[in-house]
Amino acid sequence: RLIESLSQMLSMGFSDEGGWLTRLLQTKNYDIGAALDTIQ
């Protein structure tokens, strides 16, 4: 599930440099909407 969510976020133009996006998705239970809300 992480790989699916991460690949979708990467395709939106986000980077996972340093693993920050992986950690964010894990804390949000791989919910892309919740991750995007946090980023904004």
Rank of each mutant, 00 (worst) to 15 (best):
R1I: 10
R1K: 13
R1N: 12
R1F: 10
R1Y: 10
R1G: 11
R1E: 10
R1A: 11
R1H: 10
R1T: 12
R1W: 12
R1M: 12
R1V: 10
R1P: 10
L2S: 05
L2N: 04
L2F: 08
L2T: 02
L2P: 04
L2M: 07
L2I: 07
L2V: 06
L2R: 05
L2W: 07
L2D: 06
I3T: 11
I3K: 14
I3S: 14
I3G: 11
I3M: 14
I3F: 14
I3D: 12
E4F: 09
E4Y: 09
E4D: 12
E4W: 11
E4K: 11
E4Q: 12
E4V: 11
E4T: 10
E4L: 12
E4S: 12
S5F: 14
S5Y: 09
S5W: 13
S5R: 06
S5N: 04
S5P: 06
S5E: 04
L6S: 00
L6Y: 03
L6G: 00
L6P: 00
L6M: 07
L6H: 01
L6R: 03
L6N: 00
L6F: 05
S7L: 14
S7A: 14
S7R: 15
S7P: 01
S7M: 14
S7E: 12
Q8I: 15
Q8R: 13
Q8P: 01
Q8A: 13
Q8D: 06
Q8W: 10
Q8Y: 13
Q8K: 14
M9T: 01
M9L: 13
M9W: 06
M9Y: 03
M9A: 05
M9P: 00
L10Q: 08
L10P: 00
L10H: 06
L10F: 11
L10K: 10
L10M: 12
L10E: 07
L10I: 13
L10W: 04
L10V: 09
L10S: 06
S11I: 11
S11L: 12
S11T: 10
S11P: 01
S11E: 12
S11W: 07
S11A: 15
S11G: 11
S11N: 12
S11Q: 13
S11M: 13
S11H: 11
M12W: 10
M12V: 03
M12E: 03
M12Y: 07
M12R: 07
M12G: 02
M12Q: 06
M12F: 08
M12L: 09
M12N: 04
G13A: 04
G13Y: 09
G13V: 06
G13R: 01
G13Q: 05
G13N: 04
G13L: 08
F14I: 05
F14D: 02
F14H: 03
F14Y: 13
F14W: 09
F14S: 00
F14K: 01
F14R: 00
F14L: 06
F14M: 04
F14T: 02
F14V: 02
S15R: 08
S15M: 09
S15D: 15
S15L: 09
S15C: 11
S15N: 14
S15E: 10
S15I: 10
S15Y: 09
D16M: 04
D16L: 02
D16G: 02
D16A: 06
D16P: 02
D16T: 03
E17G: 06
E17T: 12
E17M: 11
E17D: 12
E17S: 10
E17Y: 11
E17P: 07
G18H: 09
G18R: 07
G18S: 09
G18W: 08
G18M: 08
G18Q: 08
G18K: 06
G18V: 07
G18F: 09
G18Y: 08
G19C: 12
G19S: 05
G19T: 03
G19P: 02
G19I: 01
G19Y: 08
W20Q: 02
W20K: 03
W20G: 01
W20D: 02
W20L: 04
W20P: 00
W20N: 01
W20H: 03
W20T: 02
W20M: 03
W20S: 03
W20Y: 07
W20F: 05
W20V: 04
L21W: 03
L21N: 00
L21E: 01
L21I: 05
L21F: 06
L21H: 01
L21G: 00
L21R: 00
L21K: 01
T22G: 03
T22M: 08
T22K: 04
T22L: 07
T22R: 10
T22D: 01
T22P: 01
T22I: 07
T22H: 05
R23V: 08
R23A: 10
R23Y: 08
R23L: 10
R23N: 09
R23Q: 10
R23W: 08
R23H: 09
L24P: 00
L24A: 01
L24E: 00
L24M: 05
L24D: 00
L24T: 00
L24R: 01
L25A: 00
L25S: 00
L25P: 00
L25E: 00
L25G: 01
L25V: 01
L25Q: 00
L25Y: 01
Q26Y: 09
Q26D: 04
Q26I: 15
Q26K: 14
Q26P: 00
Q26S: 09
Q26F: 09
T27N: 13
T27E: 15
T27P: 02
T27M: 15
T27I: 15
T27S: 15
T27Y: 13
T27L: 15
K28F: 14
K28T: 14
K28L: 15
K28D: 02
K28N: 12
K28P: 02
K28V: 15
K28I: 12
K28G: 05
K28M: 14
K28R: 09
K28W: 12
N29I: 08
N29M: 09
N29Y: 09
N29R: 08
N29S: 07
N29Q: 08
N29A: 11
N29T: 03
N29L: 09
Y30D: 03
Y30P: 02
Y30W: 10
Y30A: 05
D31L: 08
D31N: 09
D31S: 09
D31P: 03
D31T: 05
D31F: 06
D31E: 07
D31K: 02
D31Y: 06
D31I: 07
D31W: 10
I32S: 03
I32K: 04
I32W: 08
I32V: 13
I32Q: 03
I32M: 06
I32P: 03
I32G: 02
I32A: 04
I32R: 03
I32L: 07
I32T: 05
G33E: 14
G33F: 13
G33Q: 15
G33W: 15
G33K: 14
G33I: 14
G33S: 14
A34E: 09
A34W: 07
A34C: 09
A34K: 10
A34R: 08
A34N: 07
A34D: 08
A34L: 12
A34F: 06
A35G: 02
A35T: 12
A35R: 01
A35Y: 04
A35Q: 03
A35N: 00
A35L: 08
A35E: 03
A35H: 04
A35W: 08
A35P: 04
A35M: 05
A35K: 02
L36Y: 06
L36R: 03
L36S: 01
L36H: 02
L36I: 10
L36W: 08
L36P: 02
D37I: 14
D37S: 13
D37E: 15
D37W: 11
D37K: 14
D37P: 02
D37M: 13
D37R: 13
T38A: 15
T38L: 11
T38K: 07
T38Q: 13
T38Y: 15
T38I: 13
I39Q: 03
I39T: 04
I39N: 01
I39P: 02
I39F: 05
I39Y: 05
I39L: 12
I39S: 02
I39M: 06
Q40G: 10
Q40P: 05
Q40L: 15
Q40R: 15
Q40E: 10
Q40F: 15
Q40S: 12
Q40W: 12
